[in-house]
Amino acid sequence: MLDLVIDARPAALSPGFEVKRILPYRLRRMLGPFIFMDHAGPVQLTPELLPTLDVLPHPHIGLSTVSYLFGGQVTHRDSLGVEQIIRPGEVNWMTAGSGIAHSERFEDPAMLAGGQLEMLQTWVALPEADEETAPAFDNYAPHELPIFTEPGVWLRLIAGDAFGLKNSVKTHSPLFYLHVVLQPGARFGLPRGYPERGAYVAKGQLEVNGRLYGPGQLLVFTPGLDPVLVAREATTLMLLGGEPLGERFIWWNFVSSRKERIEQAKADWLAGRILLPPNDNLEFVPLPQDKTRPAGSGFPAPQALS
C-alpha cells in the first residue's frame, strides 16, 4: 500500500525563516518528475524582519519551478524581465530550461499578520529533449485552475490531468498536482493512470490502511494499488506524481540528466553568463563553495528556496 513515508526535515533559508524540506530524500530522489518540494510557513515574524525572508536572485537550469500559496503574497522577478506578484490560488510556473535567474521578495508587511504567509514550492524536472528549452514564465489565475467539489471534498487542479480535470498550465511530461481539502470523515482516492503517486499532508490528520499520518509527511504509494484516504480531522493535502523521467543529478539549484551540464552551469553563474533580473540586479546568491557536495549528490543550498 505504502512504499515509503518521508518526514519533512527542517531547512533554514535565512535567520528566522525555516522551511519543511520534503524532496529530494536520500531514499527517494524523485516522485514522477517532481524532484524538489519545500513547504514554508505559516511564518510568524514581526514586520521589521520581513526583509530576512527575501530569496535573492539565483539561477536554475533543467527544471520548472512551481510556486503555490496558501496565504500571503510573493513578488517574483526574473532575468526575462518578468515581475509578478503571486497570491493564494494562483500558480507561478517558471521553466528554467537552458538557464534563468529569479528572485522572490516578500514586500507586504500586512501578510505577516496572524501567520498568513504560507507557500509550497516544487521543482519539476524536464525531459531530456526539453532540458535546454528557452526559459519561460507563466502566471495562472485561480479561474484558470478548475475546482471540483462533493460533500466533504474540495480540490483544485494545479497542473496536469487528474479525475477528468485539465487546465492550460503548460507541462512537459505526464503529471498531476492537486490541492485537496477534506472535511472530517471524508474519503478520497488517488488519480489513476500514473505509475508514481504521493500525498503530502500539509495540515490535519489522514488515515490510510488503518494507520494515521500528520503534517509534514509525504506518503509514497505502491504502484498499481488504489488506497482510500480518510480524513480524521479537517485535512489539507497536496497530491502529486506522474511518469518518471529517469535519473537526474541535482546540485544547488541545478538539475540535469548530465553531470557535465551541472559543471557548466556552475561556471556560467560564476562568470555572469546567466543574467540577473533587470529590475533586481544589485545583489545575488553566490555559488556555494561546498566541496563535499559533488554534482549529482548535493541538495539545494540553504540560501534559496528555489
Rank of each mutant, 00 (worst) to 15 (best):
N253P: 08
Q183G: 07
L305F: 08
L239G: 11
G16N: 13
P24E: 06
M37A: 13
L219W: 01
F70C: 06
H58F: 08
A301D: 13
L13I: 04
K170N: 02
A129H: 12
M111C: 13
A101S: 15
G272Y: 04
A162P: 09
R273Y: 11
V19K: 03
G198Y: 07
L206C: 03
E144K: 10
T292H: 04
D268A: 15
F70L: 14
K266H: 08
R293K: 15
G214W: 00
L276S: 04
L178E: 13
A199F: 03
P215I: 07
G32N: 13
P57L: 11
L49D: 14
L229P: 03
S103K: 04
A202N: 01
A162I: 10
V66K: 05
H76I: 10
L218C: 00
M37Q: 04
T122C: 06
A301E: 10
T149S: 14
A129T: 14
Q44S: 13
D54L: 06
E83L: 08
P300N: 15
L287R: 10
E260N: 02
L53H: 06
L229M: 04
K259Y: 09
A11V: 14
G32Q: 12
V124W: 02
A125M: 00
L126G: 09
S256T: 09
V66H: 07
K20V: 03
P227V: 03
R248W: 00
G97M: 11
P33M: 05
Q121C: 09
M238C: 11
D7Y: 00
I262A: 03
L282N: 10
D268T: 05
R87E: 14
L287W: 15
E207I: 01
E104K: 04
G214L: 02
D226G: 00
D138W: 13
V82M: 08
N209E: 15
V91S: 10
D138I: 00
A8L: 01
F106V: 01
D54W: 12
R28F: 05
G72P: 10
Q303I: 01
L31K: 04
S79F: 08
